[in-house]
Nucleic acid binder design. Sequence first.
DNA 1: GTCAGGATATGATTTATATCACATTTGTAG
DNA 2: CTACAAATGTGATATAAATCATATCCTGAC
Lengths: 229, 229
Amino acid sequence: MDLPGQVNCETCRIRSCAVEVLDHQELQILKTNCAGAVYKKNERIFQQGSLCSNITYVKTGLIKIHKNGPSKDQILKLVKPPRFIGIPTVLGDKINHYSATALMPTTVCFIVTGIFKTLIMRNGKFANEVINSLCQDELTFYDRSINQMQKQIHGRLADALLFLADEIFLSDSFELPLSRSDLGDYIHATRESVTRTLSRMKSDGLIQMQGRLITLADKEMLVRISKLG
Amino acid sequence: MDLPGQVNCETCRIRSCAVEVLDHQELQILKTNCAGAVYKKNERIFQQGSLCSNITYVKTGLIKIHKNGPSKDQILKLVKPPRFIGIPTVLGDKINHYSATALMPTTVCFIVTGIFKTLIMRNGKFANEVINSLCQDELTFYDRSINQMQKQIHGRLADALLFLADEIFLSDSFELPLSRSDLGDYIHATRESVTRTLSRMKSDGLIQMQGRLITLADKEMLVRISKLG
DNA sequence: GTCAGGATATGATTTATATCACATTTGTAG
DNA sequence: CTACAAATGTGATATAAATCATATCCTGAC
């Protein structure tokens, strides 16, 4: 982790919808209680179980939110910036209920929890935007959760690849930011099953692979596989 | 559905934490934009895909939140009152992204979405309580989601029984409010597997069953099964 | 370069649970 | 009470994916 020192929220160009509605004075409050940080690939941003007094705002990069389950670690979601994460930690216990780890070089801002709460109390529009964001997360996670449960590996993997292409990289060709093992934790499959399914997709001409570089060759078919489950 | 007419939020004894922080004037606003309703078992409260202009506050009873998946309907969660549901619908499209159905006789209040938003904007404490509630939902759902994915049927069913006993009925003996089929949709299993697993638990002396009445006979063991997965 | 440790590939086997097929019970409308 | 539909129980079979066991491929350190 690298600390680039003080940030300036007033001139920041990657502001969230929520911060966008703050007035001059509120931005000043935010600015003096906000610190930036830079993370390299695979660096932990915060750790499940540890005490936490900050909300994290992911500005650039890509992170995974993951959590220990009864038998293994599971990736709950990949978070594409810009996005607040860890808001649930404002709750009573102030303990992180999940971990966050950078999958690519990532920049974040930490906002002191108390200040975040103050802004919610003080500015209704801010609160409203935060609520919108939480609601959107909820709906997205419901969808993902149902897909994970009901689709079989081909469908889940197709989902993941389409998500990476369409939501994260905005290109049908990208460097896979996850290892086979991580991909498995993300789509709830074993490393071996991921390998097998990717190989199958390659030999079926759905994707191309050269090392980490993946190209979605037959997107129509991938969408169909995703829909069929 | 039965409409008992006007409600009085000022004298209501089943108020949420959020409504608790409203002042006299705000309670008046709420009162005039809030309608009560009563549902019988298996009545639909709102339907996925339909337009919706209300937040639902579940006062008494028990409801299931369920959603169509690629292959079948799935119960996302059982909601124990008092609780707001459908807050995500305040978002852009105003379309329900899931259905809610009463599992027992249930009373609810509908609050016009616009008023809900007004209260958020106007009263920071209210907004804060709503955020707390959403965050709590999020964490609970993460836990449930991971358990569903990683535990096998015995563990998932034990979870469900313990949840019903400890969270819903506050008793180790209760009338099962879900059919085998519903239970299956809740723990992501087939009707047949639920039957088989319940029979097994009965013959192992973990539970007793007389018709709909279930008694958790060996709770220690159920907890152990739940933990082991 | 070489070497070691991690990541990936791939085949054989096992297993949990779905699916299918049918029997039995329960609830309910007439 | 009767009858019919819905809910539940139970066995046989199929199957997706995990697990186990190696083998091969990278990648970075020295």
